[in-house]
Amino acid sequence: MSARGAPRTLVDRLLAGHSALVYLFFYAPILLLMVFSFNDNDNVQIWTGASLRWYRAMFENDAVMSALRNSLVVALLSTVVSTIIGTMLAIALERYRFRGRGALDGLAYLPIIIPDVTMAVMLLIFFFQSLGIVNDIFGTSLGAGLGTITLAHIAFNISFVAVVVRARIAQFDPAMEEAAADLYASRWQTFRRVTLPLIAPGVAGGALLALTLSLDDVVITQFVSGPGSATLPVYVFGLVRRGVTPLINAVSVVMLVASMILVAISLGFQRGSVARGQGLADPAALEEDLRGSRSDAETSPAI
């Protein structure tokens, strides 16, 4: 049992050893996959030498490239929209009291907590039903595709962006905004010159996380995609279920490295929040927040 700064004891050594093993558990599979993606052999498991053969094959594969294009289109669109809406949501929840705030707070957390499969089912039924109605009324023949995938990604990304941005807003003193107002800045000027620069790292971090989640999502996308609109993870998932091939290894490594880089940059932007165990570093705080806001809603008089 060692408090901070105490000399190393046996327990401390054991803890250190255990932690090293946990990190090994986290990273060894990833590293092995990376190494084997450079394998020259047709058989995934037998190492015959390093080569970029499968990476070349990946770039020459039309299906992979078209899936990649779909992924990028969806990810960029959904990131832009969800970042704007999510940031507004974060500001509203963190800085204002209004009727229905408690309900919105709960609603905003649900997409984070709910299992993928159930959200996928919800959106499948919703799009099936609503596209049917729209097509009946306007005589169109809209179907599931990149549009429905983008709409679905925005739905879950808003919540993640809001959590990251909220952690950032909670860190700075509202007095800064008040000072601007005291100096006769209009609301818009205050937002533009004070609030936005202060929350910018949070917004950037949230946007990158949204981009990552959108590029990585399989289950929800699979349910709301239509013919020809498979994104890269959906395409890879389909292949993986049939077996392991060197081509999948190469594509997987590209996806993994891309998402790790995006996450690392996102965490860099959220640095302060990570250190304080806020936002995404701390799902517990997330839940606590939810509870806090619930009790707020109960005690504060209806305005």
Binding site: F237, V240, M255, S259, M260, V263
Partner: peptide
């Protein structure tokens, strides 16, 4: 936060 599908794969 990085790709769940690939980590499982």
């Amino acid at each position: 936060w990085s790709n769940f599908l690939v980590r499982t794969y």
